[in-house]
Design a protein around this nucleic acid. Structure first.
Lengths: 128, 128
DNA sequence: CAGTATCCATCGCGATACTG
DNA sequence: CAGTATCGCGATGGATACTG
């Protein structure tokens, strides 16, 4: 937690940042996205779907569970079976994330264009 | 860029992830937030406001400029003066970010509560 | 199957020093 | 003032091996 000298001008920034810490965490978002789409997934289903390592998936799922975004259901069978699903809070979190994802898809062409132009002008200076 | 075996089940995830990379980057978001609020800021104004290191601010600003989210205006005076502001694309990006920030402020109490309960139950097991 | 534990490479990022 | 260059530490996260 970078609680250095930051956020002097923005007291609530540190709190918003906590959530951004969750969103910024690609894996957490992808997990939420997957669960929103499939409703219920087992551990290895998520693992295969996302191409995430066991370690990371385990860590991130516990974080999400701790934050009340994901529900974990353990079935003590043999072999064991564990199902993950979004909580109500998880679904409510999905809403703004979806908004962001929509913006992303809509505007990535613009970003690509801006990058191309920026890089082109950088090249011009180099060859000048 | 972790272009490993990820995203098999979600081709557009990698693109969404690019934007999440930007959002996840706390500094980039805080810069956008600051510029949205103050319209125009100079390099050191941003630096002081955010408590960010020169190096990071410089790097992040160039990223944001390259992506077309931030506009850089150089005034060749002595001493030099450089002003940063959001582009139209930057402002449009601010919208979904604001949505997310609002969700954060609204729901952080819920997250805190969920955490407290989760940690309490974890403690119970430990002492059992 | 659903994890946990250990090891290790990478790198984000701050601190510091220097320049036009 | 507005950067760039270099160094170094700590966190992030993958690979691998082991357990109930």
């Amino acid at each position: 937690m970078p609680e250095k000298s930051a956020y002097q001008g923005c007291p609530q920034c540190s709190r918003i940042n906590e959530v951004l810490g969750r969103v910024g965490d690609r894996w957490s978002v992808l997990i939420v996205l997957s669960l929103a789409q499939y409703k219920v997934l087992r551990f290895n289903e998520l693992k295969r779907h996302l191409g995430i390592s066991q370690r990371m998936l385990s860590l991130k799922l516990r974080e999400l569970e701790r934050d009340g975004l994901v529900n974990r259901t353990y079935h003590p069978t043999i072999p064991p079976k564990v199902e993950y699903a979004l909580t109500d809070l998880g679904y409510s979190f999905y809403e703004p994330v979806k908004t962001l994802g929509t913006w992303a898809l809509d505007n990535l062409p613009n970003i690509d264009e801006a990058r191309a132009e920026f890089d082109m002008q950088a090249d011009e200076k180099k060859s000048a």
